[in-house]
Design a binder for these strands. Structure first.
Length: 400
DNA sequence: CCTCCACCGGAAAGCCGGGTCA
DNA sequence: TGACCCGGCTTTCCGGTGGAGG
């Protein structure tokens, strides 16, 4: 056993048949140059150039589907800007925050996070929000610098417009020449319509929309990355084309294209083949779909899982459309069986709505006249991943 | 045209587990 | 130690409602 494992490892190290530098086909990799985004990069640059003269730049909102280069372009510009600022000895700080991933969705958290970025630890909770604001304010004020706060996936902060307001208002109170500019990155164009008008006005003027990449553009991007990532000759002709074509159909998502290419490579590698083929791309696509879905299901709160499982059971026993009432009854029974405290129908109603948002089900309110008003629910999990999802739910809920 | 069903969904308030601070 | 704060989840309360059936 030991022998073979050892062999496996040495084999793995010595037998590099596919990848040269795998990181280059990860979406987080920032290449030396971003192709097909020159126009946007220049525009961002134009907006922030005043920073180099110590002037206040405007706030900026950037929109576009996922994987169209918003984050990459912004990070790219900031990198260059910081470099230039260093050359001419001007203080510029860039604070990059991903609101969704870091769960920054309240005033308190945003302020605390910025404070930490500026070198001051703030407890996760406990302090009055105004005190945190004052701390952040002092930090910025004393530093006499321009701080550019990048809020990626800013939609996650929708409920916390106070926080955004704070950030845009802070400039009026600063006394020692410090400045704060905000870059909001969102994949929802309607985001602006939903935010607080006070905040909206402070973002007025500058916004930038990133169009999706088309298939040829995606092909260029993949080729640029593949050059670094793969050994020469490791890709069969047509592989890149195929990844580009698939991703182009899904709103020109470069992240998706890169993931496909990387996973296809991994599959080929694991099978001990020295060439990535189109078939590997197909397999990669299937596997990614399945993994994404099961992962989402697995990481759902237990109560949500119970609701989903109830819907799944009802669907499997015939009906392809179920209603809130049915789900609730079934859910109650399930709770009884697995000894879990059942929640109210009101709450279940919300959980159903959440499951709709994450795409596991599709639910829409319909009126059935005398039959009352309810949600009509259909399961949205693809047939081929259904067994795996059911298995996952069973394990999570520990039902037999 | 009116009724009335079976929920929807907003508001407010409670509870809990995390924390600070004097 | 006790007063107080924060965020997340949940309950309680309750007014609202599209449209089939009367």
């Amino acid at each position: 056993m030991q022998q073979t494992l050892n062999e496996l490892f040495t084999n793995f190290i010595e037998k590099q048949t596919i990848f040269k530098e795998k990181d280059a086909v990860r979406p987080t990799y920032l290449p030396d140059s971003l192709i097909h985004r020159q126009e946007q990069i220049l525009k961002i640059g134009r907006i922030f150039a005043p920073v180099l003269k110590g002037e206040t730049p405007s706030n900026l909102l950037i929109f576009g589907w996922t994987g169209v280069g918003k984050t990459a372009a912004t990070r790219f510009v900031m990198q260059e800007l910081r470099q230039k600022a260093q050359e001419i000895k001007r203080a510029v700080d860039v604070v990059y925050l991903n609101c969704k991933m870091e769960k920054i969705n309240t005033e308190y958290r945003l302020l605390a996070r910025i404070a930490r970025e500026l070198g001051k630890e703030i407890p996760v909770t406990g302090l009055p929000t105004t005190e945190v604001y004052n701390t952040v304010f002092r930090l910025i004020n004393d530093k006499s610098t321009t701080i550019i706060v990048i809020l990626d996936e800013i939609d996650a902060m929708e409920q916390a417009s106070d926080a955004l307001y704070d950030l845009t208002r802070i400039n009026y109170d600063l006394t020692k020449g410090s400045r704060v500019a905000v870059v909001g990155i969102s994949n929802d164009i309607n985001f602006v319509e939903r935010i607080d008008p006070r905040v909206k006005s402070s973002f007025s003027g500058e916004d930038l929309v990133f169009p999706p990449y088309n298939a040829p553009q995606l092909k260029d991007i993949l080729e640029q990355r593949a050059d670094k990532a793969f050994l020469s000759g490791a890709l069969s002709p047509g592989v890149i084309q195929k990844c580009a074509a698939i991703a182009a159909q899904e709103h020109g998502d470069a992240r998706r294209a890169l993931d496909l290419l990387r996973v296809a490579g991994e599959i080929a590698e694991r099978r001990g083949q020295d060439k990535v083929t189109e078939e590997h791309v197909d397999d990669a696509q299937g596997r990614m779909d399945m993994e994404n879905i099961t992962e989402v299901v697995r990481t759902q709160p237990r109560q949500s899982q119970a609701v989903l499982y109830s819907i799944l059971l009802l669907t499997e026993s015939g009906a392809d459309e179920v209603e809130t009432g049915d789900v609730f009854n079934n859910y109650s029974k399930l709770c009884n069986k697995i000894k879990m405290k059942p929640l109210t129908q009101r709450r279940i109603s919300d959980l159903i709505a959440e499951l709709d948002i994450i795409g596991a089900i599709s639910a829409s309110v319909v009126s059935k006249g005398r039959g009352g008003r309810t949600r009509t629910i259909t399961l949205k999990i693809p047939q081929n991943t259904l067994p795996k999802v059911r298995q996952t739910l069973k394990e999570e809920l520990m039902v037999d």
